[in-house]
């Protein structure tokens, strides 16, 4: 089959995959909210805050590396975390903008930004695979799903670089983009069933822990 024909079919599939992902996410959230809510029955702590501020603060800790010792003491790890997640965002945008507004991605500056981010995320991802394989503690806590997700993302980041290189005219075969879109579709379909769905839970888990501990007075965390 011609690359163009396949490309068109994949484009359709990846929009369908997006719909399926959204559907499974909704089901996942319904499932989560089926469990009863915990309400702290104690009166607020002496230093407690019953507003939503501690919960929002907790939610925002992703952009506050100083808020937790685990990120404060490991700035390099935090930076790689940021790059990795920027890579995911860039990768998703690349897939959808390529079918909605391809000329935008052809702009040299835009193309360079996408390629740099995706290439950096690729390197971080390779580093993370090695970390998971080489550190006994990471091996102990890793499941096949953890390895697979990381490998999938690594390949996806790599293929994203090639796809953008194709879009911006550096590589000529349409297959680079077609393969990238196929991977994206698979990624979108697989995500809700895998640990990558953590970003669905993230806002809730952080909000809840902030709410509970804020009510008691220990969130925002304090150190002297």
């Amino acid at each position: 089959m011609e690359a163009h024909g396949v490309h068109y079919a994949i484009e359709v599939i990846h929009w369908v995959a997006l719909g399926v992902m959204a559907l499974v996410y909704v089901l996942r959230l319904l499932w989560l909210f089926k469990f009863k809510n915990f309400r702290d029955r104690q009166a607020p702590g002496e230093n407690g805050d019953t507003t939503n501020w501690p919960a929002l603060y907790s939610l925002g800790n992703v952009v506050m590396p100083w808020a937790m010792e685990s990120t404060r003491k490991r700035p390099f790890f935090y930076v790689t975390f940021v790059i990795f997640h920027l890579g995911v965002v860039a990768g998703i945008f690349l897939a959808f903008i390529s079918s909605l507004n391809r000329p935008f991605l052809e702009e040299p500056v835009v193309a360079s930004i996408f390629m740099i981010i995706l290439a950096a995320a690729f390197l971080v991802s390779v580093g993370r695979i090695l970390r998971r394989l080489l550190r006994p503690v990471m091996r102990l806590i890793s499941t096949p799903d953890d390895y697979f997700c990381l490998s999938l993302l690594t390949v996806w980041f790599g293929s994203g670089v090639l796809a953008e290189a194709h879009i911006s005219g550096h590589l000529h075969s349409e297959w680079y983009l077609t393969i990238y879109l196929a991977l994206t579709s698979f990624f979108l379909l697989y995500v809700p069933f895998s640990k990558i769905s953590h970003y669905l839970y993230y806002p809730f888990t952080r909000f809840w822990i902030g709410q509970t501990l804020g009510h008691r007075g220990s969130m925002p965390a304090s150190r002297g």
Binding site: L32, N37, F38, I141
Partner: peptide
């Protein structure tokens, strides 16, 4: 509870 389930499903190892 919802909060406990959140902690159970939220770990990314």
């Amino acid at each position: 509870t919802r909060q406990v389930v959140g902690s159970l499903v939220g770990c990314v190892h």
